[in-house]
Amino acid sequence: MKKIGIFDSGVETPEEIILAAGLIPYRLFGDPTIEPDKANEHIPPTHCVWTRNLLEKAIKGLDEDIIGIIGTHGCDRTNREFDIWLECLNFDFMFFLNSPRKRDESALKFFIDDMKELITQLEDHFNVKITTEKLRESIKKMNNIRSLLKEISEFRKKMILKGSEFHALVKLAQQQDKDEVVKILESKLEEFKTRNPFLDTNIKKVILTGSDIDDTEFIKYLEELGFHIIIDDLGVGTKYFWDLIDENEEPIVALAKYHLNKPIHSTKFPSYERFEVIKKLAEIYEVDGIINIAQKFCEPILYDHPYMNKMFKNLEIPYLFVEVTYNRESYKQLSTRFSAFAEII
């Protein structure tokens, strides 16, 4: 089946619409083992490391099943770089979805309009009909995936499932055929039900937040340093499945409401509300500390960090903020900081 590549700084793209068009939504992830040499010819090196990496991969050639791209409004990077993608890539179908920054009534109406436009353009371009029925079906399918992921996520709390293993599953859910995803998640769920917990008493339970992190090796690296990501507040994580879409409401309205009500990402307004999201999770999951990761030059996270720092200090919850270059070699240089944090919490 053909795929639509998704260029999104969070998980703001309504995959259900793509599914209803008979296509596979395929979120684009980077590759931290490559250097963005070609992308650096288009975007200055002081801009987000992650989006440059994505562009690098896209210029070098994406999976040949990908027949179109949806770029979704997130931060200045996705917004401004979409035009560069238009310049550099040769896809007949390229759509920029203006997922709104605000989350009120007018934003809702606007998002509905924008999703309708996406539907029109998909229908015209691929000669398909995106019916209400198909949308309802795909919402059901995605809700099922969300529920499965949420259930599986709890095995992190039971110390049965490692954060890295879970992270890989969420990534898979964002790229593979959704029927396949359901099968994999169902079988994994059965497996986890019979798996024994790991018995490391010295392990530090943390919540991971910040820029979206798509490199599972980074999570493994944190685990090697003694952390357990018991919960997260990421797009490749809880933001993808925490809430469900209302299956009784008119599908487009339900989709728009879902995206405007789900746990907020730092690219939306007011991003300080993300603090409340993290705080709540930190309390429920009784974490030992918070790790906030900013991809190098990630402005949304850099702006929010001092506020987070202040607020968590007030709550006396240990908080570590680290800027990361999207490159596996560079992770090692951060070990001292992570280890020191593991020691104090």
């Binding site: 409004h73 979409f82 238009l86 920029f96 709104p100 307004f269």
Partner: peptide, 9 residues
């Protein structure tokens, strides 16, 4: 919140 106009809007 001002929607972002891109080259193919």
């Amino acid at each position: 919140d001002v929607p972002h106009v891109v080259s193919n809007t």
